[in-house]
Amino acid sequence: MSESMNKQVAISNVIYKASLFLDEHRWDDWLNLCHEDFYYAIKAFSPEINYDMIYMDGNREDMRSITDMLPKHNSDNSPLARHTVVYTVEMDESQDTATAVSSFAVYKTELDGINSHALAGESNIFLVGKYRDKFGFENGEPRFIERVVQLDTRRLDKGSHFPI
């Protein structure tokens, strides 16, 4: 396999690994996949107001701060499961950076968010959208430079404290 192909496979793997780490609330492991200049954003286009919106954004330290403070906040602890499919990985000419587009659906399995007696265990789609990622390489390993979570879903109900 060519070096380019190897890198593309490695990028796909790191996208899937990130989904697992996020599902499992392994925030440090997730952030360790990210470059120190990492930028994260959740965005959506609203046809209601005809505007490209940013629902959340921050750098690596912002994301660490948010995840570190999760235990201090009251949250819906219903597990989120990210079903991710990597659609494209495109290397730049230098082979030093790459972009990737993945489709995702986030399923929420109710635990304690509404009425656990009746609803715990019920799974519903919470969000759908695309991950638009940029990667660099450190010691040959891909690292997220940027992740833009482009949401299709705009009816967000209770929302979430967790990165998507």
């Binding site: 959740i42 940013i54 629902y55 959340m56 954004d57 906040h73 009251n74 949250s75 819906d76 968010g113 509404i114 967000l156 109900d157 209770k158 929302g159 979430s160 404290h161 967790f162 990165p163 998507i164």
Partner: peptide, 19 residues
């Protein structure tokens, strides 16, 4: 967004409580 956005600190807590 940091307070009132759907992924912010306060809005989720408020909506959780009324639910």
């Amino acid at each position: 967004n940091s307070i009132w956005g759907p992924f912010g600190r306060n809005l989720h807590e408020d909506l959780l409580a009324v639910t």
